[in-house]
Design a binder for these strands. Structure first.
Lengths: 214, 214
DNA sequence: AGAAACCGACTGACCAGTCGGTTTGGTGAT
DNA sequence: ATCACCAAACCGACTGGTCAGTCGGTTTCT
């Protein structure tokens, strides 16, 4: 149902509890937001006790932080794997974009947390906010650099562009999160893809190629 | 110092207090975030009393909402005015972009509230979130539609693109808000401009034109 | 036995919102 | 010009509810 949060050893009671807590946190934070969620909510949903929560994590903030970091790593790895299945820069960027959209659609709570809650939880979390966003942006930046290197696109400020790309996807996703009926995320993909690829000067031939996965 | 929040009549004691409260709210919410700010903080900063605050607004949420709406309207009007000074679509979009960047740089609290806090304040505010973002996106969308109409750019999904554009700017601004020393917002503008204009297929001649205001 | 893991009632701090009381400014009667 | 009066505007101590974090005690594993 939800992304596999890492379960360190397969049998330990300790890890099972930690995992249950994080999974509950994912849902509760996703539904009620960081401030709207009480530690008791998470604990109840996990079928554990407050004592257990504070045995594993020093604070509510630490639960949130751990969750965000693990979600981000998990997500980035999964996207990276999808990118490595193909070779041309345009296809790899495609894979990243589609992969992100896929995961968001399937795991709405995750999307809410990664895209909205981290930003809104407060300044105390701004390092985490930047950490997450950079993870994604770096993924894109590396690909753009590669595309520049092999001459698929002209040289440009790939760092800024990667940031802007993520922002564009983020904004579209935020609107979709607010009103899922307004239009599926997947439906926006072709326009978004065209917009982004064109923005860095991919050749029209590459841009026009119909994506395989749609 | 701060944007002029509307002061309805020039002399009324009532309006002066309302204005003082909103101005204080702008700073306090901008610094501590919605949840981190106590009504007492706002009241203290405004040099007023809690009674006055609850005489003017029914709740803390209402203060926030009123502030967000007024900031958004103020901002959109100011941008619109700047756009109307020029004529060609590319220039008008330029003016919008630069205007937004200008205001954000000058009024960091405003930027934090409009770009981050509204999103993070919780689901209760998601209507306000969408309201604000749509205001900006509509501004851009109208211009894009105009550009399509006169044949400056090919037909495209202007609604989606406007959303994506705002997201791109938003993301760059969020990083800048987190670490202002990392690079000024104005410095990012040329790359961003090029990226966005190119993304919708403006002719290279239009894209390459060096902006007047830089 | 001893330690690691877990339980859940309790506490203390915080804070949105209330309310009885006070000040201020306007209006009109004298 | 003075005063009486009223309502709008304002004050700030207080209340009630919420919730993060604690801690003495229990269970489970080795």
């Amino acid at each position: 149902m939800s992304l596999r949060l890492p379960r360190r050893s397969s049998t330990g009671r300790k890890d099972a509890t930690r995992h249950a807590l994080l999974e509950a946190a994912l849902n509760v934070f996703g539904e009620k937001g960081y401030h709207g969620a009480a530690v008791d909510d998470i604990v109840d949903r996990a079928g554990r006790s407050k004592g257990a929560a504070y045995f594993h994590f020093p604070s509510k903030a630490a639960i949130f932080r751990a969750l965000v970091r693990e979600l981000a790593n998990q997500l980035v790895n999964s996207i990276q794997r999808k990118m490595d299945d193909v070779d041309s820069p345009a296809e790899r960027l495609d894979a990243a974009l589609l992969g992100l959209i896929d995961v968001f659609v399937r795991h709405r709570s995750l999307a809410r947390i990664v895209l909205i809650e981290v930003a809104g939880a407060g300044r105390a979390f701004s390092d985490d906010l930047i950490f997450v966003r950079r993870q994604f942006a770096d993924l894109i930046e590396r690909e753009l650099d590669r595309a520049v290197e092999i001459g698929a696109i002209p040289p440009c400020d790939t760092h800024l562009i990667a940031t802007a790309w993520f922002g564009a996807l983020n904004e579209v996703a935020v609107h979709w999160l607010h009103d899922p009926d307004a239009g599926s995320l997947h439906a926006s993909y072709p326009s978004l893809r065209q917009l982004l690829l064109q923005s860095v000067g991919f050749s029209p031939a590459e841009v026009d190629r119909v994506p395989l996965h749609a």
